[in-house]
């Protein structure tokens, strides 16, 4: 395969978006045990809000990005307070379905405000191409990769050393014990949603800068499941590595299937086939917590 290197590099760029979305997913799951099927829609909302501030309101990019972050935090707080908190203690299917319902609502709202046509982000970064391994690569991809890496490092440090981060880990480990040590569980839940929204917002803006955005962007929330499962549902490192790996796997499989089998659009299916294999042999992923149970 002559384009192998190209596929791998594009895959890494795609994977860094996956990593960000997976990071948001894992943060919510770790702290609240909620499986968020609306993660992709949070990405989409972030991208559209940023688009609205930058293009429609004409603000400079940095200002609109900060405003977008504030908006997503408010949105996340509202979602947590209105939809998820009444469902604490309900069976897992209810929680899954409420996030699915929410994703439908968010998608419809975005469609009502902005329509279903593609939207183009303005050029944020200078139009520079960098050569990596003899391959011209737009600077956006490199920026996406670096940003994903940076966010991952920041959140790892946050969880390891900051007071709030430790409190979140404690909540994830044992809610009852954490509550009795004086940690406000509800605040932790709200905070984990905020962080997830911020991370997805970064993901959305990166997608917007790399390509144009449309209302199918929310689909990425489902495509990220292989990455999350590969890394383990509750591991940040797993989310980051899993995202990158699945991105590369998708692009390489897509290229290979196109070249040798003449099949189009095989990438997504390849990652889901891979997901089934992982679930069969190592369901808790590379770094996830294993729940051992013998029947």
């Amino acid at each position: 395969m002559e384009h192998l290197l190209e596929h791998i590099i594009i895959g890494l760029a795609l994977g860094s978006v996956y990593s960000l979305v997976a990071l948001g997913f894992v943060i919510i799951y770790k702290a609240t045990k909620v499986v968020n099927f609306a993660q992709g829609e949070l990405v989409m909302v972030g991208a559209y809000i940023c688009f609205a501030f930058t293009v429609q309101a004409g603000l400079p990019f940095v200002a609109s990005f900060l405003l977008t972050l504030i908006f997503s935090v408010i949105l996340a707080l509202a979602i947590e307070r209105l939809a998820l908190r009444p469902l604490i203690g309900e069976p897992i299917i209810s929680v899954i379905m409420v996030t699915i319902g929410m994703s439908a609502v968010l998608k419809t709202l975005v469609q009502l405000f902005w329509g279903t046509t593609k939207k183009n982000f303005p050029e944020v970064l200078p139009d520079v191409t960098v050569k990596i391994g003899g391959l011209p690569l737009e600077i956006e991809y490199i920026a996406a990769f670096i940003l994903a890496l940076l966010l991952f490092v920041i959140f790892s440090l946050f969880f390891k050393y900051s007071r709030k981060g430790v409190a979140m880990r404690a909540t994830a480990f044992d809610q009852l014990a954490a509550a009795s040590m004086g940690i406000g569980i509800k605040n932790i839940f709200a905070m984990s949603w905020c962080i997830a929204a911020i991370v997805s917002c970064f993901g959305g803006v990166i997608v917007g800068v790399i390509q144009d955005i449309n209302t199918d962007l929310g689909h990425v929330g489902l495509l990220v499941f292989p990455a999350v499962i590969l890394g383990g549902l509750d591991s940040l490192l797993g989310a980051a590595l899993g995202g990158l790996f699945i991105g590369v796997l998708q692009k390489v499989c897509e290229g290979a299937a196109h070249e040798y089998l003449g099949l189009g659009g095989f990438g997504n299916v390849a990652s889901f086939l891979f997901l089934v294999v992982i679930l069969m042999i190592k369901p808790y992923g590379l770094f996830g917590t294993e729940e051992i149970e013998r029947v």
Partner: peptide
Amino acid sequence: GGVFGLVLMLFLI
């Protein structure tokens, strides 16, 4: 789609 999602959420809550 949105009404469907909203009805679903309201029922669950």
